[in-house]
């Protein structure tokens, strides 16, 4: 039996959708008994907390303070650890987004807890939780156990489907904001640069259109019409990002975003292992590449050997006919 604390992630005054994957993890980890609560932390957490009221949490804990306006680990981690201790939680979890990956190890160190990073599955077995995690760039899965009483876990968004509301209204409770770490005085938020996009987030998109280095400077020119037609998010291979054809935050791969949409287009992407590790959980994969031997065809459900500069505009036209 486990009692799980889910740490929600906030973005622009709302709960980020990534949080729903951690809720799915919590439901799974408590399937054999136990409950979960959700900590909403950040400036504006009180207003945002209502978004999570219907997910079956025992409690929604709210840590709302102006000092938590911008995410700084050294300001967030002390409160997360204190709430975990005060509530005697066995497991502390947040989705393995860049937020969860930055925050949770520091929380684990404060709690003396073991940390299971970036897991793809959890199995309650014999009173213990077994965590499955991809390793070696997704070439193997390890089955890990933590030896500590308190456990900290980050589930992969692509492997834990976003939780749906289960009804009811979890009671909400305000919790104290713990003073920041002394080190917080040495970290200053400067700015957040984000490419403003009307497109869905890579972690949440039903369809992703990804491009590789072959697109060169015409990356956006070629892919945008296809993404627009499908309402898709745009992704990129590491090579395309490194070459400057696409911004770094679009990178899909073991070391970038790990995604599992219903439909994934790999366009002009050869299919390096580290890229495959970031997208091979996708339900249907389409590859368009002029090299018939490209490794991407080994994972693609549908492969088209063609010049992408001709095939993609044609694809846009054909898709518009059937949508």
């Amino acid at each position: 039996m486990s009692n799980v604390l889910v740490v929600a992630e906030m973005l622009d005054g709302h709960v980020r959708k990534s949080t729903h994957s951690a809720i799915t993890f919590a439901r799974k980890a408590t399937a054999g008994g136990g409950t979960f609560s959700i900590l909403v932390i950040g400036a504006g957490a009180q207003a945002a907390s209502g978004e999570l009221a219907a997910y079956g949490a025992q409690k929604i804990l709210v840590a709302d303070d102006a000092s938590l306006k911008n995410y700084i680990c050294e300001r967030f981690a002390p409160t997360v650890a204190a709430v975990a201790k005060a509530g005697s939680f066995d497991v502390v979890t947040a989705t393995a987004s860049s937020y969860g990956k930055d925050l949770l190890p520091r929380v684990a160190a404060k709690l003396g807890a073991g940390y299971a990073p970036d897991i793809s599955d959890v199995t309650p077995a014999g009173g213990k939780l077994s965590y499955k995690r991809p390793m070696y760039a997704g070439n193997a899965y390890g089955h890990a156990e933590l030896t500590t009483a308190i456990q900290v876990v980050s589930p992969r968004q692509s492997e834990f489907a976003a939780a749906e509301p289960s009804g009811g209204a979890s009671p909400s409770e305000v919790v104290a904001v713990t003073p920041p770490d002394a080190a917080a005085s040495r970290v200053e938020f400067v700015s957040m640069e984000s490419a403003k996009s009307e497109r869905p987030d890579l972690g949440e998109a039903r369809v992703i259109v990804s491009g590789g280095r072959a697109l060169k400077e015409q990356f956006a020119q070629v892919l945008d019409p296809l993404a627009n037609a499908l309402g898709a998010a745009v992704g990129a291979s590491r090579a395309a990002c490194d070459a400057g054809y696409a911004p770094a935050e679009l990178q899909v791969g073991q070391t970038g975003r790990v995604v599992a949409p219903a439909l994934y287009f790999a366009i002009g992407i050869s299919g390096a292992i580290q890229h495959l590790a970031g997208m091979k959980g996708s339900k249907t994969i389409v590859a368009i590449n002029k090299d018939a031997e490209a490794p991407i065809f080994q994972v693609a459900d549908y492969g088209l050997v063609a010049d992408l500069f001709q095939a993609v505009p044609e694809l846009v036209t054909e898709i518009k006919k059937v949508l």
């Binding site: 970290v187 640069e193 770094a248 935050e249």
Partner: peptide
């Protein structure tokens, strides 16, 4: 410049 989901988060840390 920290590479985070959705962009770059710039922070200044004192050593």
């Amino acid at each position: 410049g920290r590479e985070v989901d959705g962009g770059t988060l710039n922070v200044k840390v004192t050593l």
